[in-house]
Design a protein around this nucleic acid. Structure first.
Lengths: 184, 184
DNA sequence: GTCTATATCGCGATAGAC
DNA sequence: GTCTATCGCGATATAGAC
Protein backbone atom coordinates (compact mmCIF):
# COMPACT_ATOMS: atom_id res chain seq x y z
CA UNK A 1 0.00 0.00 0.00
CA UNK A 2 1.66 3.26 -1.09
CA UNK A 3 1.87 6.08 1.39
CA UNK A 4 0.26 8.38 -1.17
CA UNK A 5 -1.98 7.64 -4.12
CA UNK A 6 -0.18 8.05 -7.40
CA UNK A 7 -2.93 10.16 -8.95
CA UNK A 8 -2.35 13.36 -7.02
CA UNK A 9 -2.70 15.64 -10.04
CA UNK A 10 -5.98 14.04 -11.05
CA UNK A 11 -7.38 14.25 -7.55
CA UNK A 12 -6.41 17.89 -7.35
CA UNK A 13 -8.10 18.51 -10.67
CA UNK A 14 -11.28 16.83 -9.50
CA UNK A 15 -11.35 18.81 -6.28
CA UNK A 16 -10.63 22.06 -8.10
CA UNK A 17 -13.31 21.63 -10.77
CA UNK A 18 -15.77 20.82 -8.07
CA UNK A 19 -15.03 23.94 -6.07
CA UNK A 20 -14.81 26.15 -9.15
CA UNK A 21 -18.29 25.06 -10.10
CA UNK A 22 -19.80 25.49 -6.67
CA UNK A 23 -18.10 28.66 -5.42
CA UNK A 24 -16.65 30.14 -8.57
CA UNK A 25 -13.03 30.34 -9.63
CA UNK A 26 -11.89 33.50 -7.81
CA UNK A 27 -13.54 32.53 -4.54
CA UNK A 28 -11.79 29.17 -4.50
CA UNK A 29 -8.42 29.06 -2.78
CA UNK A 30 -5.65 26.57 -3.18
CA UNK A 31 -5.87 25.49 0.46
CA UNK A 32 -9.50 24.60 -0.19
CA UNK A 33 -8.53 22.59 -3.27
CA UNK A 34 -5.84 20.60 -1.51
CA UNK A 35 -8.10 19.92 1.44
CA UNK A 36 -10.52 18.19 -0.87
CA UNK A 37 -7.72 16.00 -2.20
CA UNK A 38 -6.01 15.34 1.12
CA UNK A 39 -2.78 17.01 0.02
CA UNK A 40 -0.76 20.13 0.79
CA UNK A 41 -0.29 23.37 -1.11
CA UNK A 42 3.29 22.38 -1.71
CA UNK A 43 2.11 19.34 -3.58
CA UNK A 44 -0.28 21.45 -5.60
CA UNK A 45 2.58 23.58 -6.86
CA UNK A 46 4.63 20.55 -7.67
CA UNK A 47 2.01 19.51 -10.19
CA UNK A 48 0.73 22.87 -11.39
CA UNK A 49 2.52 26.11 -12.07
CA UNK A 50 -0.38 28.16 -10.73
CA UNK A 51 -4.05 28.03 -9.85
CA UNK A 52 -5.22 28.35 -13.44
CA UNK A 53 -3.05 25.48 -14.58
CA UNK A 54 -5.14 22.88 -12.82
CA UNK A 55 -7.89 23.29 -15.41
CA UNK A 56 -5.61 22.35 -18.28
CA UNK A 57 -4.09 19.14 -16.99
CA UNK A 58 -5.71 17.01 -19.66
CA UNK A 59 -4.36 18.83 -22.68
CA UNK A 60 -0.86 19.37 -21.42
CA UNK A 61 0.58 17.03 -24.00
CA UNK A 62 -1.97 17.79 -26.67
CA UNK A 63 0.32 20.00 -28.76
CA UNK A 64 3.05 17.36 -28.78
CA UNK A 65 0.58 14.63 -29.65
CA UNK A 66 -0.74 16.60 -32.59
CA UNK A 67 2.77 17.43 -33.75
CA UNK A 68 3.76 13.78 -33.57
CA UNK A 69 0.71 12.86 -35.62
CA UNK A 70 1.73 15.33 -38.29
CA UNK A 71 5.19 13.83 -38.47
CA UNK A 72 3.82 10.36 -39.15
CA UNK A 73 1.42 11.35 -41.92
CA UNK A 74 1.91 10.17 -45.51
CA UNK A 75 4.91 11.57 -47.31
CA UNK A 76 2.87 12.72 -50.26
CA UNK A 77 0.81 15.31 -48.40
CA UNK A 78 1.50 18.98 -49.11
CA UNK A 79 1.41 21.41 -46.16
CA UNK A 80 -2.29 22.21 -46.49
CA UNK A 81 -3.14 18.55 -46.74
CA UNK A 82 -1.12 17.96 -43.60
CA UNK A 83 -3.13 20.57 -41.76
CA UNK A 84 -6.45 19.05 -42.77
CA UNK A 85 -5.14 15.64 -41.80
CA UNK A 86 -3.96 16.92 -38.43
CA UNK A 87 -7.19 18.74 -37.70
CA UNK A 88 -9.15 15.61 -38.44
CA UNK A 89 -6.93 13.46 -36.24
CA UNK A 90 -7.15 15.92 -33.37
CA UNK A 91 -10.91 16.08 -33.71
CA UNK A 92 -11.21 12.31 -33.54
CA UNK A 93 -9.14 12.33 -30.35
CA UNK A 94 -11.47 14.75 -28.64
CA UNK A 95 -14.71 13.35 -29.93
CA UNK A 96 -15.18 11.20 -26.83
CA UNK A 97 -14.43 13.93 -24.32
CA UNK A 98 -17.34 16.20 -25.02
CA UNK A 99 -18.85 16.18 -21.53
CA UNK A 100 -15.72 17.13 -19.56
CA UNK A 101 -14.77 19.69 -22.19
CA UNK A 102 -18.16 21.33 -21.92
CA UNK A 103 -17.91 21.34 -18.17
CA UNK A 104 -14.58 23.08 -18.28
CA UNK A 105 -15.90 25.50 -20.87
CA UNK A 106 -18.56 26.71 -18.48
CA UNK A 107 -15.95 27.41 -15.83
CA UNK A 108 -13.63 29.25 -18.18
CA UNK A 109 -16.36 31.38 -19.69
CA UNK A 110 -16.61 34.71 -17.93
CA UNK A 111 -13.27 34.42 -16.16
CA UNK A 112 -10.74 36.46 -18.14
CA UNK A 113 -7.94 34.89 -16.15
CA UNK A 114 -8.90 31.48 -17.43
CA UNK A 115 -9.63 32.66 -20.94
CA UNK A 116 -6.12 34.05 -20.92
CA UNK A 117 -4.64 30.67 -20.10
CA UNK A 118 -6.80 29.02 -22.71
CA UNK A 119 -5.40 31.38 -25.32
CA UNK A 120 -1.90 30.42 -24.28
CA UNK A 121 -2.78 26.77 -24.81
CA UNK A 122 -3.94 27.46 -28.34
CA UNK A 123 -0.77 29.42 -28.89
CA UNK A 124 1.29 26.45 -27.80
CA UNK A 125 -0.71 24.26 -30.12
CA UNK A 126 -0.01 26.62 -33.00
CA UNK A 127 3.69 26.67 -32.18
CA UNK A 128 3.90 22.88 -32.11
CA UNK A 129 2.06 22.63 -35.42
CA UNK A 130 4.29 25.29 -36.94
CA UNK A 131 7.42 23.40 -35.98
CA UNK A 132 6.02 20.13 -37.29
CA UNK A 133 4.98 21.64 -40.61
CA UNK A 134 8.38 23.16 -41.05
CA UNK A 135 10.02 19.86 -40.26
CA UNK A 136 7.82 18.32 -42.92
CA UNK A 137 9.23 20.69 -45.49
CA UNK A 138 6.89 23.66 -45.49
CA UNK A 139 8.72 26.94 -45.82
CA UNK A 140 8.87 28.83 -42.52
CA UNK A 141 6.42 31.54 -43.43
CA UNK A 142 3.79 29.19 -44.76
CA UNK A 143 4.26 26.94 -41.75
CA UNK A 144 3.59 29.86 -39.45
CA UNK A 145 0.51 31.02 -41.32
CA UNK A 146 -1.00 27.56 -41.66
CA UNK A 147 -0.33 26.72 -38.02
CA UNK A 148 -2.08 29.86 -36.81
CA UNK A 149 -5.03 29.27 -39.10
CA UNK A 150 -5.23 25.68 -37.92
CA UNK A 151 -5.28 26.71 -34.26
CA UNK A 152 -7.94 29.30 -35.00
CA UNK A 153 -10.00 26.71 -36.83
CA UNK A 154 -9.70 24.31 -33.95
CA UNK A 155 -10.74 26.86 -31.38
CA UNK A 156 -13.78 28.00 -33.34
CA UNK A 157 -14.76 24.42 -34.05
CA UNK A 158 -14.58 23.34 -30.43
CA UNK A 159 -16.77 26.28 -29.47
CA UNK A 160 -19.35 25.42 -32.07
CA UNK A 161 -19.29 21.73 -31.25
CA UNK A 162 -19.82 22.43 -27.57
CA UNK A 163 -22.64 24.87 -28.15
CA UNK A 164 -24.45 22.77 -30.73
CA UNK A 165 -23.39 19.14 -30.77
CA UNK A 166 -25.55 18.21 -33.70
CA UNK A 167 -22.50 17.26 -35.77
CA UNK A 168 -19.36 15.29 -35.05
CA UNK A 169 -16.35 17.43 -34.20
CA UNK A 170 -14.48 16.07 -37.21
CA UNK A 171 -17.19 17.41 -39.49
CA UNK A 172 -17.29 20.76 -37.75
CA UNK A 173 -13.55 21.09 -38.05
CA UNK A 174 -13.62 20.44 -41.76
CA UNK A 175 -16.42 22.93 -42.34
CA UNK A 176 -14.72 25.57 -40.21
CA UNK A 177 -11.43 25.10 -42.03
CA UNK A 178 -13.25 25.86 -45.22
CA UNK A 179 -14.87 28.93 -43.72
CA UNK A 180 -11.61 30.25 -42.32
CA UNK A 181 -9.68 29.78 -45.52
CA UNK A 182 -12.31 31.48 -47.66
CA UNK A 183 -13.57 34.21 -45.33
CA UNK A 184 -11.22 36.83 -46.74
CA UNK B 1 1.13 72.58 -5.75
CA UNK B 2 -0.95 69.41 -5.95
CA UNK B 3 -0.36 66.73 -3.43
CA UNK B 4 0.11 64.19 -6.19
CA UNK B 5 1.04 64.43 -9.85
CA UNK B 6 -1.79 63.42 -12.14
CA UNK B 7 0.28 61.01 -14.19
CA UNK B 8 0.64 58.24 -11.66
CA UNK B 9 -0.05 55.45 -14.14
CA UNK B 10 2.49 56.76 -16.62
CA UNK B 11 5.14 57.18 -13.98
CA UNK B 12 4.53 53.65 -12.79
CA UNK B 13 4.86 52.40 -16.35
CA UNK B 14 8.14 54.22 -16.82
CA UNK B 15 9.55 52.89 -13.60
CA UNK B 16 8.40 49.36 -14.38
CA UNK B 17 9.80 49.25 -17.93
CA UNK B 18 13.07 50.51 -16.59
CA UNK B 19 13.33 47.82 -13.94
CA UNK B 20 12.09 45.07 -16.25
CA UNK B 21 14.87 45.91 -18.65
CA UNK B 22 17.59 46.09 -16.04
CA UNK B 23 16.68 43.24 -13.71
CA UNK B 24 14.22 41.23 -15.73
CA UNK B 25 10.49 40.89 -15.26
CA UNK B 26 10.33 38.14 -12.62
CA UNK B 27 13.06 39.67 -10.48
CA UNK B 28 11.26 43.01 -10.34
CA UNK B 29 8.85 43.49 -7.45
CA UNK B 30 5.98 45.91 -7.20
CA UNK B 31 7.52 47.66 -4.18
CA UNK B 32 10.55 48.36 -6.37
CA UNK B 33 8.34 49.75 -9.12
CA UNK B 34 6.41 52.07 -6.83
CA UNK B 35 9.58 53.29 -5.17
CA UNK B 36 10.79 54.54 -8.52
CA UNK B 37 7.54 56.42 -9.02
CA UNK B 38 7.20 57.78 -5.49
CA UNK B 39 3.93 55.95 -4.88
CA UNK B 40 2.65 53.07 -2.79
CA UNK B 41 1.83 49.48 -3.62
CA UNK B 42 -1.80 50.20 -2.99
CA UNK B 43 -1.82 52.88 -5.67
CA UNK B 44 -0.23 50.51 -8.16
CA UNK B 45 -3.18 48.18 -7.87
CA UNK B 46 -5.64 50.98 -8.33
CA UNK B 47 -4.21 51.60 -11.81
CA UNK B 48 -3.28 48.08 -12.80
CA UNK B 49 -4.99 44.80 -12.21
CA UNK B 50 -1.67 43.00 -11.75
CA UNK B 51 2.04 43.23 -12.41
CA UNK B 52 1.72 42.26 -16.05
CA UNK B 53 -0.87 44.91 -16.73
CA UNK B 54 1.57 47.76 -16.40
CA UNK B 55 3.14 46.84 -19.73
CA UNK B 56 -0.11 47.29 -21.63
CA UNK B 57 -1.18 50.71 -20.41
CA UNK B 58 -0.80 52.33 -23.81
CA UNK B 59 -3.10 50.04 -25.73
CA UNK B 60 -5.81 49.80 -23.17
CA UNK B 61 -8.21 51.71 -25.36
CA UNK B 62 -6.84 50.42 -28.64
CA UNK B 63 -9.67 47.95 -29.27
CA UNK B 64 -12.30 50.63 -28.70
CA UNK B 65 -10.45 53.09 -30.91
CA UNK B 66 -10.29 50.59 -33.74
CA UNK B 67 -13.95 49.70 -33.29
CA UNK B 68 -14.93 53.37 -33.38
CA UNK B 69 -12.94 53.80 -36.58
CA UNK B 70 -14.82 50.93 -38.17
CA UNK B 71 -18.13 52.49 -37.25
CA UNK B 72 -17.26 55.74 -39.01
CA UNK B 73 -16.11 54.20 -42.27
CA UNK B 74 -17.96 54.74 -45.54
CA UNK B 75 -21.37 53.16 -45.76
CA UNK B 76 -20.60 51.46 -49.02
CA UNK B 77 -17.89 49.16 -47.71
CA UNK B 78 -18.64 45.46 -47.45
CA UNK B 79 -17.33 43.57 -44.38
CA UNK B 80 -14.02 42.60 -45.95
CA UNK B 81 -13.47 46.13 -47.16
CA UNK B 82 -14.12 47.33 -43.63
CA UNK B 83 -11.47 45.02 -42.29
CA UNK B 84 -8.86 46.23 -44.74
CA UNK B 85 -9.82 49.80 -43.95
CA UNK B 86 -9.56 49.15 -40.23
CA UNK B 87 -6.23 47.38 -40.51
CA UNK B 88 -4.84 50.26 -42.48
CA UNK B 89 -6.11 52.85 -40.01
CA UNK B 90 -4.71 50.91 -37.05
CA UNK B 91 -1.37 50.58 -38.80
CA UNK B 92 -1.18 54.32 -39.41
CA UNK B 93 -1.87 54.92 -35.71
CA UNK B 94 1.03 52.76 -34.63
CA UNK B 95 3.47 53.83 -37.31
CA UNK B 96 4.97 56.48 -35.03
CA UNK B 97 5.35 54.27 -31.99
CA UNK B 98 7.86 51.83 -33.36
CA UNK B 99 10.60 52.46 -30.80
CA UNK B 100 8.51 51.97 -27.63
CA UNK B 101 6.74 49.00 -29.20
CA UNK B 102 10.05 47.34 -29.95
CA UNK B 103 11.27 48.06 -26.46
CA UNK B 104 8.22 46.37 -24.99
CA UNK B 105 8.58 43.49 -27.41
CA UNK B 106 12.01 42.69 -26.05
CA UNK B 107 10.64 42.55 -22.53
CA UNK B 108 7.69 40.36 -23.45
CA UNK B 109 9.72 37.92 -25.50
CA UNK B 110 10.82 34.99 -23.43
CA UNK B 111 8.38 35.64 -20.59
CA UNK B 112 5.40 33.33 -21.07
CA UNK B 113 3.48 35.28 -18.46
CA UNK B 114 3.72 38.38 -20.59
CA UNK B 115 3.10 36.59 -23.84
CA UNK B 116 -0.07 35.29 -22.24
CA UNK B 117 -1.29 38.78 -21.48
CA UNK B 118 -0.38 39.89 -24.98
CA UNK B 119 -2.58 37.16 -26.38
CA UNK B 120 -5.46 38.40 -24.27
CA UNK B 121 -4.99 41.88 -25.72
CA UNK B 122 -5.27 40.54 -29.25
CA UNK B 123 -8.34 38.61 -28.19
CA UNK B 124 -9.92 41.80 -26.92
CA UNK B 125 -9.06 43.48 -30.18
CA UNK B 126 -10.73 40.67 -32.10
CA UNK B 127 -13.81 40.89 -29.92
CA UNK B 128 -14.14 44.65 -30.43
CA UNK B 129 -13.73 44.25 -34.18
CA UNK B 130 -16.27 41.44 -34.23
CA UNK B 131 -18.85 43.57 -32.48
CA UNK B 132 -18.20 46.52 -34.78
CA UNK B 133 -18.46 44.42 -37.92
CA UNK B 134 -21.71 42.97 -36.74
CA UNK B 135 -23.03 46.41 -35.97
CA UNK B 136 -22.09 47.39 -39.48
CA UNK B 137 -24.30 44.68 -40.88
CA UNK B 138 -22.04 41.67 -41.26
CA UNK B 139 -23.74 38.45 -40.28
CA UNK B 140 -22.52 37.16 -36.90
CA UNK B 141 -20.53 34.26 -38.22
CA UNK B 142 -18.69 36.25 -40.84
CA UNK B 143 -18.04 39.01 -38.32
CA UNK B 144 -16.42 36.50 -35.99
CA UNK B 145 -14.27 34.94 -38.68
CA UNK B 146 -13.12 38.23 -40.17
CA UNK B 147 -12.36 39.69 -36.76
CA UNK B 148 -10.19 36.76 -35.79
CA UNK B 149 -8.36 36.84 -39.10
CA UNK B 150 -7.86 40.57 -38.74
CA UNK B 151 -6.37 40.21 -35.26
CA UNK B 152 -4.09 37.44 -36.52
CA UNK B 153 -3.00 39.60 -39.42
CA UNK B 154 -2.26 42.47 -37.10
CA UNK B 155 -0.20 40.38 -34.74
CA UNK B 156 1.89 38.82 -37.47
CA UNK B 157 2.37 42.20 -39.13
CA UNK B 158 3.57 43.89 -35.96
CA UNK B 159 6.08 41.11 -35.42
CA UNK B 160 7.42 41.42 -38.91
CA UNK B 161 7.53 45.20 -38.78
CA UNK B 162 9.46 45.15 -35.54
CA UNK B 163 11.94 42.56 -36.73
CA UNK B 164 12.53 44.10 -40.14
CA UNK B 165 11.38 47.70 -40.39
CA UNK B 166 12.21 48.02 -44.04
CA UNK B 167 8.57 48.68 -44.90
CA UNK B 168 5.87 50.86 -43.42
CA UNK B 169 3.51 49.00 -41.10
CA UNK B 170 0.58 49.88 -43.36
CA UNK B 171 2.25 48.05 -46.23
CA UNK B 172 3.15 45.06 -44.10
CA UNK B 173 -0.42 44.81 -42.88
CA UNK B 174 -1.79 44.78 -46.39
CA UNK B 175 0.66 42.14 -47.55
CA UNK B 176 0.01 39.97 -44.50
CA UNK B 177 -3.75 40.23 -44.96
CA UNK B 178 -3.28 38.86 -48.44
CA UNK B 179 -1.08 36.04 -47.16
CA UNK B 180 -3.50 35.11 -44.41
CA UNK B 181 -6.54 35.08 -46.65
CA UNK B 182 -4.88 32.93 -49.30
CA UNK B 183 -2.74 30.61 -47.18
CA UNK B 184 -5.37 27.89 -47.11
C1' DG C 1 8.09 19.48 3.90
C1' DT C 2 8.74 24.07 6.13
C1' DC C 3 9.33 28.84 5.86
C1' DT C 4 9.13 33.31 3.87
C1' DA C 5 8.63 36.85 0.47
C1' DT C 6 5.56 38.78 -2.58
C1' DA C 7 1.18 39.77 -4.79
C1' DT C 8 -3.39 41.17 -4.09
C1' DC C 9 -7.02 43.64 -2.21
C1' DG C 10 -10.44 45.52 1.51
C1' DC C 11 -11.10 49.47 4.52
C1' DG C 12 -10.93 53.98 6.57
C1' DA C 13 -8.74 58.47 6.48
C1' DT C 14 -7.03 62.39 4.00
C1' DA C 15 -6.02 65.98 0.81
C1' DG C 16 -6.76 68.66 -2.98
C1' DA C 17 -9.97 69.81 -7.30
C1' DC C 18 -14.37 71.56 -8.59
C1' DG D 1 -19.95 69.98 0.29
C1' DT D 2 -18.82 66.32 -3.27
C1' DC D 3 -15.72 63.76 -5.95
C1' DT D 4 -11.61 61.55 -6.88
C1' DA D 5 -6.94 59.96 -6.17
C1' DT D 6 -3.94 58.84 -2.74
C1' DC D 7 -2.04 56.85 1.58
C1' DG D 8 -1.41 53.63 5.43
C1' DC D 9 -2.62 49.61 7.60
C1' DG D 10 -3.66 44.96 7.64
C1' DA D 11 -5.22 40.38 6.08
C1' DT D 12 -4.90 36.44 3.04
C1' DA D 13 -3.40 33.87 -0.84
C1' DT D 14 -0.01 32.82 -4.05
C1' DA D 15 4.41 31.34 -5.24
C1' DG D 16 8.92 30.04 -4.63
C1' DA D 17 13.28 29.40 -1.77
C1' DC D 18 15.58 26.64 1.31
Amino acid sequence: MPRWSPDAALRLETSAMDLFERRGYPATTIPQIVDGAGLTTRTFFRHFSDKRDVLFLREREFPQVVAATLLTAGDDLPPRGLVVFGLRAAALELEQWRAPIERRRRIIRGEPQLRERELLQYDRLAEAVRAALQERGADPRQALLLARLAALTFELSLDQWIDAPDHALAEVVEATWHEVTTAG
